[in-house]
Simulated scan of single mutants.
Amino acid sequence: MHKQESILIVEDDYDIARIMSDHLRKEGYDTTWASTGKEGFEDFKVGEYSLVIVDLMLPEMDGFSLCEKIRLESEVPLLIVSARLEEENKVRGLGLGADDYLTKPFGLAELSARIRSHLRRYRRYMIQDEEEIQRFSRGLAIDYVKRVVYLNGAPLMLTAKEIDVLFLLARNPFQTFTKVDIYEHIWQQEDSEGNNTVTVHIKSLRDKLKDQTRASKFIQTVWGEGYRFIGDQLS
């Protein structure tokens, strides 16, 4: 392993988390442990992980919600580990973007094999992704790796939160996000007065993108619902 890969373990059972973490460290991985769904998402937002292991039954935020939030902004492999055997849970978890589902109890050798398989695919994806900048008509280009947004070849002076909002929308084109969705995902707080915060950031983004509300090129208002990204991606 040329570069030590980092794995985030989100598991509320201390003994299980310790066994997985100790085993994966012996395998050469760096591991971070979070005991709640909310803590796991906070760790994910500030760290760089090659794979995330998620239990379903978590306090504060369940594993389903955590997988959904992570998948909105990253293609990192998601491996669900759960004692819940029901097929509907597997279907729901995979439908939310998880890559695999491992039922407890499981062997550590199988865990390692699954992780190696997903990491091989993710490495190939990352090599391709880093070579490309997503380009749209009307002069918009987004470099997700360097976190730089260009308009007609010139880099835009966006704040960190403006970039986060744009990335969330652009990574999920034509999906409508309410103001509450955006606020809770980007600011990681329950919405209180967040609606105005989102409105201000969307307005600033539109001004910098030269995007008019009545003739949207990139960010469209879905009246009574929220916002969605409608940029026309170039092939």
Rank of each mutant, 00 (worst) to 15 (best):
H185M: 09
L169N: 00
S112I: 06
P105L: 02
R18N: 13
R206V: 05
Y150N: 10
L56T: 05
A113P: 09
K146N: 13
I7Y: 02
M57C: 09
E39V: 10
S112Q: 14
A154V: 15
I19N: 01
R124H: 09
V10K: 00
Q220N: 12
Y150K: 07
E27W: 04
I202E: 02
Y14T: 11
P77Y: 07
F44D: 00
Y183V: 03
E73W: 04
T178A: 05
L78V: 15
Y29Q: 04
L56P: 03
S137D: 11
V81M: 13
L58S: 08
T103D: 03
D55G: 12
E225S: 13
K203Q: 14
S35T: 14
W33L: 13
M126H: 00
L108G: 01
L209K: 01
E184P: 08
L140V: 12
L58K: 03
E88C: 10
S137Y: 10
D207P: 12
E86S: 07
Q4L: 09
L8T: 06
A98H: 02
P173I: 08
K179S: 13
V198A: 00
L66A: 01
Y29G: 06
S235M: 14
K45P: 06
L51K: 00
H201A: 15
E131L: 12
G28P: 03
T213N: 15
F177A: 05
E75H: 07
Q220D: 12
D181A: 03
L169Y: 09
R116D: 11
G107P: 01
G37A: 06
R135S: 14
S204G: 09
G97E: 04
I70E: 02
D181Q: 04
G226W: 05
N196M: 10
N89Y: 14
K3F: 11
W33P: 07
R147A: 13
M126Q: 06
E86T: 10
R25W: 10
